[in-house]
Structure formats: C-alpha cells, structure tokens
C-alpha cells in the first residue's frame, strides 16, 4: 500500500504516503560503510605515505611498489575502501535527494543514475587494481 487515506480526523481528506522501501538496508549499510571508512582509510593513508619506499607515493610507480610489497593486504584494503567510499558517498547523495523531493519519477531517475555511477566507479577502480597487478 503506497497511500493511506485519512478521512476521519481532518476537515479535508488527506493522503499519507506509506511507501515500503530499502530504507532499513541502506541505513545499515551506510553505518557499516562508515565503520569501513574508519578502518580502511587510515591503512590507505599508511600505504600511501608511510611505507617509506623510495618512489614518490602519489605516482603509478609508487602505488605499484606498495602493491608489490604487500600484494594481498593492498588489494584487500584498497578494494574494500573503494566499495565503502563509493557506497557511502552515493547513498549520502541519495539521502539528500530523498529529503528534498518526494516525486517518485525524480527519485527513480536519481536512483538509476547513482547505481550506474557506482557500478562504473567500481569497474574503474578494480580495473586499475588489476592493472597494478
């Protein structure tokens, strides 16, 4: 049931939206991804700046060097960080849109665009990781 009619208590008939959605799951994932960011981001910074390898960190060579030093941990951390950051950011944007409009056409369009952006971002990121290897 999307709408409930309330006629009994107000002077004019009212419609109230009761639209079941993915709110609960997304909220749980938003919290989990925030913990993920807390955990993976410092490790990422450590990998990037404090591994004390010879090459400058913010270059392709630098990243490859770090990857070669800790192949498993690097892929695991950077992959999970990518997923958490993508989800956290895009879902945050979705929340802003959902707070702002109740128009379901807009909401569906935004959902579609954000999912496409998320998948594209993930492919790009994992492709880069693959390229490092």
């Amino acid at each position: 049931m999307v709408h409930r009619d309330v006629i009994s208590v107000t002077s004019r008939a009212q419609k109230v939206k009761v639209e079941p959605g993915a709110g609960t799951l997304l909220w749980i994932l938003q919290r989990l991804s925030s913990y993920g960011l807390l955990l993976f981001l410092p490790i990422h910074l450590y990998f990037t700046y404090f591994t004390k390898l010879d090459t400058p960190a913010l270059t392709y060579e630098g990243a490859r060097e770090t990857f070669r030093a800790f192949p498993l941990w690097y892929v695991l951390n950077e992959g999970l960080l990518l997923l958490c950051a993508l989800f956290h950011g895009l879902n945050g944007f979705r929340n802003v849109i959902y707070d702002w409009t109740t128009n379901s056409a807009v909401r569906h369009t935004v959902n579609f665009v954000l999912i496409v952006l998320g998948i594209a971002g993930a492919i790009l990121g994992f492709w880069t990781l693959w390229a490092l290897a």
Partner: peptide, 8 residues
C-alpha cells in the same frame, strides 16, 4: 520504517 519515515 517506510521511505517517508524514520530514515528521513
């Protein structure tokens, strides 16, 4: 827990 509920 619907879309117009607590998650907003």
């Amino acid at each position: 827990g619907s879309e117009t509920g607590v998650w907003r």
